[in-house]
Design a binder for these strands. Structure first.
Lengths: 199, 199
DNA sequence: CCTACCGATCGGTAGG
DNA sequence: CCTACCGATCGGTAGG
């Protein structure tokens, strides 16, 4: 018999994950510790371990939650646009807005996770790789549709565009987080138009 | 009286720093631990602490060494080129070669350090910020010279170019490290030409 | 979800 | 640069 109802446990779990996302966005997923989380949330370490079984599961849950936030802030606002250039531009718009906003105190969660696990093995490496690979696929699909729609030049290379957009966003994140330079936001918007050869 | 000569101590110190750079490039500067380093080098923890005084000093030394490697691999090969577009292109060339090479097992040291400290306070935040700010200044100077030389269009925005180049390199690092995608190297070269409007 | 506890490892010190 | 040691914290378990 659990000491709390399933509903109460779910609320607790959600609050743990929310705090874990905040901490990880600043200190990294490897910087998460169960003890600090317990302290922040005024609960015992065992209470946290009991919910997730292990630190690795907690990290996975935090990455899943960050994923969901990204989907909500970046993909969903663009999902209703017509496929092709219009949706691609909407995605870039909400993507830049997402980075300029306050979703994560430590900046782009995926960029951090990518750097953290790009040279490390383990399950989190695979999860990060898979998430980013999927996002690249989403972008590539829209570029391809835009080419088919003749909204972009026929000789556009979708992989080149996706590559350049991904880098752009990482540069924006650095300018905003490391230098606090808000001028990077209009620069990023301008770079999007240049990458798509719209100016 | 030291137990070893100053020359011996310097050799030891250099070997510690070299290993610290390797470890930090994979696990981050925060992932460095004195104990692991001592193990890797078959020496005692006290031997390491004795050389640096504290973990923070060891991290600083590792970042300084990474800085020196960057200077040697990226700046020096371009330093003899005439200022302006030619030197800028040489820098981009050696920069891309540096990232595609094996200088650091975990990929671009500065990108990792930037992500690690962009939302954290402390002395390493300042050191990373200063190093990257200086590099941006170097790039901007070459862009400005290229404009004065009429090698780039008069309406080129140096800060825009620097911003885009910096992002490009971060994207290249992700493609190479997280995805092991060597096709990103020619893509990066092409993106340089696009950013500078040379194609 | 709590208290009480485990062995391992952390950064660092004392003293030679 | 070593041995021996410090208190603090790590992830995690036992039992309620």
């Amino acid at each position: 018999m659990p000491r709390r109802s399933a509903a109460e446990a779910a609320v607790t779990r959600a609050s743990i994950v929310a705090r874990a996302v905040e901490v990880a966005s600043v200190d990294g997923l490897e910087g998460l510790t169960i003890g600090r989380l317990a302290d922040d949330l005024d609960m015992s370490k065992a209470g946290i371990v009991g919910q997730f079984g292990s630190k690795a599961n907690l990290q996975r849950a935090a990455l899943d939650e960050a994923s969901e936030i990204f989907r909500r802030e970046v993909w969903l606002p663009a999902a209703n646009e017509p496929p092709g250039l219009q949706r691609l531009l909407a995605i870039c718009d909400s993507w830049i807005r997402h980075l300029a906003g306050t979703a994560f105190p430590g900046g782009c969660f995926w960029t951090s996770a990518s750097i953290e696990y790009d040279a490390r093995g383990g399950p989190l490496h695979a999860q990060v790789q898979q998430g980013l690979r999927r996002w690249r696929g989403t972008l590539r699909r829209e570029v391809k549709t835009a080419i088919e729609n003749r909204e972009l030049p026929a000789d556009t290379d979708p992989d080149q565009v996706v590559f350049e957009l991904q880098g752009l966003v990482m540069g924006l994140n650095q300018a905003l987080q490391l230098f606090g330079d808000r001028r990077a936001v209009p620069r990023a918007r301008r770079a999007v138009r240049r990458i798509l050869e719209l100016e």
